[in-house]
């Protein structure tokens, strides 16, 4: 593995981790799980780094991998293999107190969506990705993204309304 390629990888990764963690956190609602997703996403990226020459839009590629890792629940236990001794370090790290806002009805409602609907909503409205790109990340048609968006927003509206009614009581 030539050093040049490694430094290109490091240069690419540098500055992108915060954005990837943010997206992963919005998708899964748990900061440890979000870090797991980012760790696995970057590992997959590095594994394929030497063959990345033909990929025109690396950010789109990385987003695709991130979403795929998030959705691929069947293998979630499997990619934990990659964590190894990284896990206990995390356990030893100081635990930030969970802000009250973390239990907010907004996050609760978001987490109540099925994973694919949640991915569509997070990517479109919280990560500001166009429909076309979201369709590519999820491996579905643009029509599917739009219909999933509509279903997800209907559901969110119901949940937000219910939460508001409860607050007033």
């Amino acid at each position: 593995m030539p050093d040049g390629s490694d430094s290109e990888y490091l240069a690419f990764v540098d500055g992108r981790i915060a954005g990837l963690r943010r997206a992963a956190y919005l998708l899964c609602g748990d900061s440890h799980a979000a870090d797991d997703i980012v760790q696995e996403t970057l590992t997959k990226l590095y594994t394929r780094w030497s063959r990345m020459g033909h990929v025109e839009n690396l950010d789109a590629y990385v987003n695709t991998v991130l979403v795929r890792v998030f959705l691929d629940e069947r293998r979630r236990g499997w990619w934990r293999v990659a964590l190894l001794d990284w896990l206990p370090e995390r356990a030893a790290a100081p635990q930030a107190p969970v802000p009250v806002e973390e239990q907010s009805f907004v996050r609760t409602a978001l987490m109540a969506l099925a994973p694919r609907q949640r991915a569509v909503v997070v990517l479109r409205f919280l990560c500001d990705q166009p429909v076309k790109d979201v369709a590519q990340y999820l491996g579905v048609s643009e029509g599917t993204v739009k219909s999933q968006t509509s279903l997800a927003l209907d559901r969110l509206r119901q949940l937000f309304d219910a939460a508001t009614v409860q607050d007033r009581r």
Binding site: Y25, S31, W86, P94, E102, L110
Partner: peptide
């Protein structure tokens, strides 16, 4: 919705 993970990056 706050979008920053509450725990430091690992």
């Amino acid at each position: 919705l706050p979008d920053q993970p509450p725990a430091p990056s690992t």
